[in-house]
Design a protein around this nucleic acid. Structure first.
Ligand SMILES: [Mn+2]
Ligand SMILES: [Mn+2]
Ligand SMILES: [Zn+2]
Ligand SMILES: [Zn+2]
Lengths: 143, 143
DNA sequence: TTCATAGTTTGGAATAGTTCTAATTATCAC
DNA sequence: GTGATAATTAGAACTATTCCAAACTATGAA
């Protein structure tokens, strides 16, 4: 069974869990995110999806991305003014924003780290999620 | 010497360091941020500043906020789609976003934490800053 | 099958937040 | 004071996103 088929099944399943249908548009949008995990904007997703579904509309891309976020298949990422970016990496990870290139890299986190970070919260703060963003420059060796 | 005067001096000094002038608009915008540290949007700053400078324009508020950010007197904060928020707290701190109320709280960080977080970066990633955002709910006791 | 219904997509209009522009006003150095 | 430079202002323009109403599609009961 191909990885694309696995993804399609995962997608169909998660959508069904939320009472939603697996449409061609949703599948292609999701596959575009999986295929190139560079945190694209909605416009960039739109451009990539068009080559497979030339008649898709930008509104539909926004709708699909929103749906995928609701189904916990994709994370919406905002760490600066400017368009929202989309990330299909569901493992706990931080983002490294390279200020020279504008590229955003995923940084895997050791399981203990989120615990440690969480532990700095004073009483009365009950966090359901933690987000970590680095800014700086990445050298060539860091692909 | 009053705290307002101290702030005004700090402001004038930092602006001068960047070759900029201390104008009434810049002073009032800065004082508004200092006075109520609730991470207001530009629109909210505009509304507060108007009571002291009724003829100030929204464009000037944006200009002043941008200037204060450049001079490292204020941080611009973006952790979701929606207007940028402004924070005059220069100590290392995280943000806690209360999803019920929409309010954003400052969480002071022990000096070791940023080191620990920083240490998860693989070779090739050179971070100049780290940002931490919690999301969840704050109980009444957490003011 | 056929039809009714609900879900989805679509293009365009509308909106929110911000930035740009060109004209005016304030400040500084001489 | 005068001229140069910096800052403010109102409004236009712009970007990203959401809203809307119409058309289309899938589903599934009769
Ligand atoms: Mn950037
Ligand atoms: Mn919020
Ligand atoms: Zn990511
Ligand atoms: Zn803050």
């Amino acid at each position: 069974m191909s990885s694309a088929t696995l993804n399609a099944d995962t997608l169909a399943q998660k959508l069904a869990d939320s009472g939603l249908r697996a449409t061609p548009q949703r599948e292609v949008v999701y596959n575009v995110l999986i295929k190139k995990r560079d945190h694209p904007t909605a416009d960039e997703v739109f451009a990539r999806v068009k080559s497979e579904l030339p008649t898709i509309s930008l509104a539909t891309v926004y709708n699909c991305l929103e749906t995928l976020v609701q189904c916990d298949l994709v994370r919406a990422v905002n760490f600066e003014r400017g368009p929202t970016r989309y990330c299909p990496n569901l493992r706990p990870h931080a983002h490294f924003h390279d200020e020279q290139t504008g590229k955003t890299h995923d940084i895997d986190l050791p399981p203990t780290l989120l615990e440690t970070v969480h532990s700095v919260l004073p009483r009365g703060f009950d966090a359901s999620s933690v987000e970590i963003i680095f800014r700086g420059k990445a050298t060539k060796s860091a692909h």
